[in-house]
Design a protein around this nucleic acid. Sequence first.
RNA 1: GGCGCGGUGGCAGAGUGGUUAUGCAGCGGACUGCAACUCCGUUAACGCCGGUUCGAUUCCGACCCGCGCCUCCA
Length: 460
Amino acid sequence: MIRIYNTLSQRKEEFKPLEAGKVRMYVCGMTVYDFCHLGHARVLIAFDVVTRYLRHRGFDVHYVRNITDIDDKILRRAEENGETFTALTERMIEAMHEDEAKLGILSPTEEPRATSFIDEILAMIRVLIQKDYAYAADNGDVYFSVNAFKGYGKLSKKKLEDLLAGARVDIAEAKRSPADFALWKAAKAGEVSWPSPWGDGRPGWHIECSAMATGCLGNTFDIHGGGPDLLFPHHENEIAQSEAATGETFVKVWMHAGAVRVNKEKMSKSLGNFFTIREILEKYPPEIVRYFLVSSHYRSQVDYSEENLEEASRTLTRLYQALRGLVPSKDAPEGESDALFHAAMDDDFNTPEAITVLHAVVSDINLHRRERRDEEARASAAVLVRLGKILGLLQQDPEAFFQAGSSESLSADEIERLIEARKQARKDRNFAEADRVRDELASKGVILDDSREGTSWRRG
RNA sequence: GGCGCGGUGGCAGAGUGGUUAUGCAGCGGACUGCAACUCCGUUAACGCCGGUUCGAUUCCGACCCGCGCCUCCA
């Protein structure tokens, strides 16, 4: 039985898909006006693992992750850059796909874009107006009337009165209530726009997700996910719009990832304390970044720091070290390790607990190797690779992992040559020379590992 | 102010009403020409104060501290 923490009920619930064997999931993706940062990676990887695990357990997962390719920030940035907004968004979408590929993030089943759902968006707004959940204001905007939807606040546990009391919401003259939000924004002169019954304009931020989610997955679907800062108002508004329009439950399970922090503060665009994925990948191999994120539970916050990445690096090194020079068995039957791994993942995708199973398997492998039980070692290696795959880890050739360093001071050929020289020196019992060679390599970031089979190397 | 989450050994990070998670780091030993890798052993924790209980890090209450959302943000 798989249990998932549902933000709506604030507890873990047994997961029962609407349709047996099938899972329909929507995750809020990027607004493509800048490069992805680590916070995006957090969400991307969290739901990548969810998808991988559910598929591993036999579910047919229909994973939809949208791209927001029209909004105020995009228009502003494009203008600053002196390029068209489509040039900007195309560039950023391409960059995002590169980042994802490097981090081993599987493509979603569908990746709808807001600009290709304008018809659906307009249709939904029309229904909302017909049902008196929305109104066209004098300024050309169309607003959702929050007071008209009685379930408003059920996701974020906020009361309308409290929201109004806080009153940091945008008080626009045209709104009937300060908490009302735009479904359609009237275009200013010269702005990109689409024609509508209420005048030329563009969709509001929230309506696009309602239109794309229901358009791709139906009025009701199983899982909706996203970052922690989308819970309110974005997801709350999605519920209001969708349920008001369809009269049906929008989503069964709401999942939210924890924030990525830097120096105890949330990494965010507005604080300017964010690190883009590509910046980080200049310093650390992608699998280490992935390991770092997966080594804490998806709902808890993680602190980005050099020390934490370094630790992830050392730990992942241990995992790959176990696989080094071993050819995993063709088919290793599922056993106790798989059962333990599943038990951890069944409990709200408890990846830190699942990783302990990986470490136990590593210990098995190392013991088998030490005692020269090659078949057992290869069988355990197969288990390790199989379980690692569910987390998107350990799929590389170990040598490739160890030798693909950024320190390009020495080529692989030069390293091999020095290792040969050291081998000869050791044969001649000239240990001073052998150690000199080893130190020379170490000074250039190359660590040697001697074993019965010979000497291997890695970039440290 | 409202709502929500959290405080675990040097660090990271799970979990449990009673039996040392796990990893990194440290320490001792084995292996090694010496190291590295690996193995064996080992040190070390549950914010504070009450309550419930035979027994609480785990349940309940208060308190302190930190974080997030309430405004665009994954």
